[in-house]
Design a protein around this nucleic acid. Structure first.
Length: 588
RNA sequence: GCCGGUGUGGCUCAAUGGUAGAGCAACGGUUUUGUAAACCGUAGGUUGGGGGUUCGAUUCCCUCCACCGGCACCA
């Protein structure tokens, strides 16, 4: 397994060299940037004067690659004997990016990889540490996927190059499986499902990144918010509300006016400047500071479903996962330094329990103290050790981003994966050694001294919008019963069964279920199909002469076929249990 | 914000320098169904907004808005 993975990396990296060679054969003016293997494939960045690559060009490049591969070329490592001469040669060839890189790596025993034909002629070379395949015979399955802009070295001040994304696999079957998977993933895209299932909409005239929650998705949200409130009360939080705007003065104190102004919507009335809140923290801080606090009162945990607005750059927006207006399931915890680690532990538990309930995949990242930081170093150390320990106790795998914490504190991020493999920040836990100072927060400790509390910011879902987007994809729009906009469809077979069906539908509603009575004048088959596959309702009760006579219903479950006849009361009892436990399918 | 692409009935998509067509959905009718798409018909579009070129623009150009794939950003 391990070996195969390394091979795949090498295969992809070598294929990227062949791609670069093909591009230069077709466009001799093309200059090379980076061309690494990545998670699901590889890419190569090119600067091609006068050419904008399109889909057809990708085909041409692919064909040229196939031709090269057939030539049975081989790769050969070449230690650069004289770096200065090589830099000069790169410059002569116009390979300014390679020259720049070599200059930086001059003391690392830099190597070239040569691509040679069978007679040993060098057809192509690239500055590269390798390793590479021995020869192109191993390249059996690859595909160029897309072309996109990318800044040289990832810096927006640099020139934008053209990046070709591609992938390669050891066999054609594996490649095909990967391509099929990509297609399947697209069907789960929450933006498509959002339209298909009438979950939400976005409108030109409302503006980008501003989501309209339709009734169906509002039901899902309501259920999740109910869960959220109940869990918070259980875990010792107080739930609060705060206004949507506040005077600039507040944001001056918090510091946001200084480093976040670009992203804030400013509202000016005749004499006062207001800010549409991009965060909830200052309000919770003021709640804290409006009374005196004893160490006995702490920790104070304030939670709010707080709707914030941030003016994101236009290109950043994406469906529900990156929006301008969104509701954070925010909380701020004020505690003593001694309580900090326990509080972090409790939040990690909260996050892990919640995500587990949704069976969601996530990755964990821990970001530690950067070079420039505020706060006491012993609190940083305590926090970092505490964060690590908590993650280990929970058995969560995590990556450490050394020095990547915010200047005001270390943090743990939970990354959720969307349908097409992109990761989005969901839950986050951030220590803050800065705002308590700026707002001069105090508590009176057991020794009578006034001390500064530690503050934690945290979200469990991140934002309702983003979480919902990922959740839609996670379930492919087929929500479990407790979240489903409609939980049961009642389908009368013929018109003469409508009255009985309506009565059952009403009874089910009286039992607290969300019911869709499908009294359309359509065939039974059509209605079953539309309810299960179209509307993705988890259960369908079919009613005809037989059922009315027996007082039962024929139950069919989404994706699981026919379950059989069942007393209505038995069905109600089972589905209610399924809903109450927010669990897996109990009706069977 | 940057590079590239896209915007046509509610949805998915087609077509064209001579004012647009299909399927699904909707509506009307027929059918009254036994477990994942019955049949017939009707209606529905200033082709994202604005401007320009042209005898004529939905098509070509400019601009704005929005969306998509990336990059950058995500305090």
């Amino acid at each position: 397994m391990e070996n195969k993975e390394i091979d795949l990396q090498t295969l992809r990296h070598s294929t990227s060299h062949i791609m670069a060679q093909a591009v230069q054969n077709i466009y001799p003016q093309a200059k090379l940037g980076f061309g690494p293997a990545i998670d699901n494939g590889f890419y190569y960045d090119f600067d091609i004067e006068g050419v904008t690559l399109n889909e057809e060009d990708l085909k041409k490049i692919e064909d040229e690659m196939k031709r090269l591969i057939k030539e049975d070329l081989h790769f050969e490592k070449y230690v650069i004997p004289n770096v200065d001469e090589q830099i000069e040669e790169f410059k002569q060839q116009g390979e300014i990016y390679k020259a720049e890189l070599l200059e930086e790596h001059r003391n690392d025993n830099p190597t070239l990889y040569l691509t040679k034909d069978k007679s040993g002629n060098v057809l192509f070379n690239d500055l590269c540490a390798g390793p590479h395949l021995e020869n192109t015979r191993s390249i059996k399955a690859f595909k160029l996927l897309s072309v996109a802009g990318a800044y040289w070295r990832g810096n927006e001040k640099n020139k934008m190059l053209q990046r070709i994304y591609a992938t390669a696999f050891l066999t054609k079957d594996e490649l095909q499986a990967h391509l099929t998977m990509l297609e399947e993933a697209q069907k789960r895209d929450h933006r498509k499902l959002g339209t298909q299932l009438e979950l939400f909409s976005l409108h030109n005239e409302v503006g980008g990144g501003l989501v309209l929650w339709h009734p169906n998705l509002s039901v899902v949200r309501e259920e999740i918010e109910n869960y959220w409130r109940t869990e918070h009360r259980k875990r010792g939080y107080d739930i609060v509300y705060s206004p949507h705007i506040a005077k600039s003065e507040l944001w001056e104190t918090s510091g946001h006016m200084g480093y976040y102004r670009e992203n804030m919507y400013i509202i000016q009335d005749e004499e006062t400047e207001f800010v549409l809140k991009p965060m909830n923290c200052p309000f919770h801080i003021l709640m804290y500071s409006s009374t005196r606090h004893s160490y006995r009162d702490l920790p104070l945990r304030l939670a709010e479903l707080g709707t914030v607005y941030r003016n994101e750059k236009s290109g950043a927006l994406a469906g529900m996962t990156r929006v301008k207006g969104f509701t954070q399931d925010d909380a701020h915890i004020f505690c003593t330094p001694e309580q900090m680690v326990d509080e972090i532990n409790a939040i990690i538990d909260f996050v892990a329990d919640t995500l587990k309930m949704f069976d969601m995949d996530f990755e964990v990242e821990l970001s530690t103290r950067p070079e420039k930081f505020v706060g006491k170093i012993e609190n940083w150390d305590l926090a970092e050790v505490g964060l690590k320990k908590a993650l280990e106790i929970k058995g969560l795998k995590y990556e450490i981003n050394e020095g990547d914490g915010a200047f005001y504190g270390p943090k743990i991020d939970f990354k959720l994966k969307d349908a097409i493999g992109r990761t989005w920040q969901g839950a986050t836990i951030q220590l803050d050694f800065n705002l308590p100072e700026r707002f001069n927060l105090k508590y009176q400790d057991s020794d009578g001294q006034l001390k500064t509390p530690v503050m934690l910011h945290r979200v469990i879902f991140g934002s309702m919008e983003r979480f919902m987007g990922v959740l839609i994809e996670h379930y492919s729009g087929a929500f479990p019963a407790w979240l489903s906009p409609k939980q049961v469809a009642v389908v009368p077979i013929a018109d003469r069964h409508i009255d009985a069906a309506a009565k059952i539908a009403n009874d089910l509603k009286a039992d607290g279920l969300r019911v869709y009575l499908d009294d359309r004048s359509e065939s039974m088959n059509y209605k079953i199909r539309d309810c299960l596959q179209g509307k993705k309702i988890p259960y369908v009760l079919v009613l005809g002469d037989r059922e009315i006579e027996s007082g039962k219903a024929a139950v069919r479950a989404r994706g699981r076929g026919q379950i059989g006849e069942m007393e209505i009361a038995e069905f109600v009892q089972k589905i209610q249990e399924e809903i109450a436990t927010r669990g897996k399918e109990i009706v069977e």
